[in-house]
Design a protein around this nucleic acid. Structure first.
Lengths: 244, 244
DNA sequence: TTATGTGAACTAATTCACAGCT
DNA sequence: AGCTGTGAATTAGTTCACATAA
């Protein structure tokens, strides 16, 4: 979201995939699903599966197979007709498309429950990311250790971001502190931000922000839940009333 | 996502908004933005703003004003031409559309860092939701207290869901336990699930699942970050190389 | 055979631009 | 005079269905 549209850029003429790392025109909706495919592929690989057809992979990823094939076709033609996809090779291609062949250093700001949960989550994030630092202001936390990473004071934010060349920052601080932390991250050179604080961050052009927001997700669920019960009521008002 | 498409159902003929709670055809993309508008409206209300124009509200929500107006138009015609929207009235209408005029009881399964973070997050969720129970298996946690809510053993899941009529469940357990918890929630009658575990949950038709996944978000950021640096390289290879 | 890759058809979402109301 | 509400135009995303290649 946010600056995603601009980043997709003008459609470059197709036909020379060798010029650039990638044909440059992978649709946003596809990008958002690639990580899901990647996870499914890892699961298959762990089970020792070496080849997979689009139906099966699609089922594991919770999408239909036409969508999966169309998505993968944006990365290139990596399947074998009549057979399927080589799991290991596809893992590599999807990883490469997502930019996970390099190891992105990440800073997590906020060592509260959420920050710690994210750090522990590390197990999953491993491939492609490493937590370079966890920052907080609380003197009880600073100097401590979260999931093997030392907690340092937010004062050091600029030094750390600069010296470690950090491009990705995670904001896990209370809402009141979030914009300030964001500004500092951006000023220090961070261009990708994952925001867990419930507010719309203000960032300059060229900075990519994604947000994760519990209350938004709950509210979307409530909407559907409400519609479900309303629908039930219309079909059989008496029964629905009895249930309630 | 997930079962959202089916839930939207066939387009009902327009023209009698009084029959049903809602015209029944609010687009998914709109539903996903309503919570953002609602938050912006609350912020304005707290500041004592009583009327707001679409431009301003749109800016606060991080969207453009045409989209905002189109979104709101799906709920009804609640603005005043030449003036704007009454903040308080719009809060009510958006809340009603989202189903937040009732108070949804929620169960959080998992009292680890993530579960606790979610429970504390409660402050924001307040309006429209209440945490009815937090469950875990860890004997060190069971019997304790998270954010004013007693932590109870997962054994009690069925009893609690049934007796409290819980329709929304949050899964904040390790990935290995998630599908099992999901199955129990569904069997007990939960029809809306917010999943934080990094896997695709298997649920029967009619159950609505939304997922929140750190690693997916990070991977999407990595994709854009990669494209950004690739673009920079193409424009000025020497300079980009020097930066790295 | 069998399953990919993809044009073509379709559906959803966004943006434009202005008529219509206050 | 100003801002909403919305048809119309545009763009993005999905699904179909089959030609193509192993």
């Amino acid at each position: 979201m946010s600056s995603a549209a601009e980043l997709s850029g003008p459609e470059s003429e197709p036909g020379h995939p060798a010029d650039r790392p990638y044909p440059s025109g992978i649709p946003e909706a596809t990008v958002a699903r690639l990580p899901v495919y990647l996870r499914a592929l890892y699961t298959l690989a762990e089970r020792g599966v070496s080849t997979v057809a689009s139906d099966e992979l699609a089922r594991a990823a919770g999408v239909n197979s036409a969508k999966l094939r169309k998505d993968l076709s944006h990365l290139g033609s990596y399947g074998i007709r009549g057979v399927g996809y080589d799991v290991e090779y596809l893992v590599y291609q999807v990883s490469r498309a997502l930019g996970l062949t390099q190891n992105w250093p990440v800073v997590i700001v906020g060592a509260g429950n959420l920050g710690r949960a994210l750090a522990h989550y590390g197990g999953f994030v491993t491939r492609g990311f490493r937590i370079e630092a966890v920052l907080d202001t609380d003197p009880f936390l600073v100097g401590g250790n979260v999931s093997g990473v030392a907690v340092r004071h937010v004062n050091e934010l600029e030094t750390i971001v600069t010296s470690k060349n950090i491009a990705i920052g995670v904001i896990a601080v209370p809402v009141g502190a979030a914009q300030g932390v964001c500004d500092r991250l951006v000023a220090a050179g961070v261009t990708s931000i994952l925001n867990f604080a419930p507010l719309v961050l203000n960032v300059p052009e060229g900075v990519d922000v994604r947000k994760v927001d519990l209350s938004i997700e709950l509210q979307i669920l409530a909407f559907h839940a409400q519609r479900r019960s309303a629908a039930r009521y219309e079909q059989a008002p008496d029964q629905a009333a009895a249930e309630a």
